[in-house]
């Protein structure tokens, strides 16, 4: 009886492990199979970014989204953090809309006022 119990516990653990492994596996597959990349480029006295899918430009952001006027990002790091956020949303199959709270979270200084 004890041996059988051990067998069940083993199966439960193995199932859990395999489940995790496959989830993890599929996640990394998603990542590697959707070749989304960001590029940072200079605009005026700041920086913009673009999101590429293979040879195609999906999004080209010369100015900070949401804000009125044409204000580029002040640093390459700001542009890069924002571009990476957009890519992570696309990989999760979410809409690429950025919101004020997300840009605050990314610590884009232009959103400190909001």
């Amino acid at each position: 009886m004890k041996r059988i119990l051990v067998a069940y516990v083993f199966i439960a653990v193995a199932t859990g492990f395999l489940f995790l492994r496959f989830t993890d596996y599929s996640f990394s597959t998603t990542k590697s199979k959707i070749p989304l990349q960001s590029e940072i480029f200079p605009v005026g006295d700041g920086y913009g970014y673009q999101i590429d899918l293979e040879d195609r430009v999906l999004i080209k952001q010369e100015y900070i989204p949401i804000l009125e006027g044409k204000r580029p990002f002040s640093t390459t790091e700001d542009a890069e953090r924002t571009a990476n956020k957009v890519i992570s949303k696309l990989l999760k199959k979410e809409s690429p809309i950025l919101t004020i709270s997300e840009l605050k979270e990314l610590q884009i200084p232009e959103f400190n006022l909001y």
Binding site: I59, K60, Y63, P65, I66, L67, G69, P96
Partner: peptide
Amino acid sequence: YDMDGDYWSQKAD
């Protein structure tokens, strides 16, 4: 949406 470049940009809300 830029019809020639075939890309999008998020503009002022």
